[in-house]
């Protein structure tokens, strides 16, 4: 299946990455090449094969829902782009 320039823009929007018109053109060429590589999979009959996500037979461990460390808000917020009174600042989303 071939990708179009509109597909590239749609995917970029889903991924929240701004792309200019020229970038979209160049990206289309590269993504088409990569998808061509991926397309080789379609020749394989995988009916009845269980998908594999982990090589070992593991189960999700559970832990008690308890606090394990102290409050480090100020320390963590030192690396934030914008904070005020302990809150992270973002553009207004509710009018």
């Amino acid at each position: 299946m071939s990708l179009t320039i509109n597909d590239v823009k749609r995917i970029a929007h889903l991924a929240r990455i701004e792309v200019s018109e020229t970038e979209a053109e160049a990206t289309l060429v590269k993504l088409t090449g990569i998808l061509g590589l991926i397309e080789e999979m379609q020749a394989i009959d995988t009916r009845g094969i269980a998908p594999m996500s982990h090589s070992q037979d593991v189960v999700q461990r559970l832990r008690a829902d308890v606090v394990t460390s102290g409050n480090q808000r100020e320390y963590f917020q030192k690396i934030a782009p914008a904070v005020e009174d302990g809150l992270y600042l973002v553009p207004k989303v509710i009018e």
């Binding site: 991926i38 999979m41 995988t46 094969i49 998908p51 594999m52």
Partner: peptide, 13 residues
């Protein structure tokens, strides 16, 4: 894509 890849992943293993 994703599901198919995870199936072939098992074949590789």
């Amino acid at each position: 894509y994703y599901l198919k890849a995870q199936q072939i992943r098992r074949l590789i293993a």
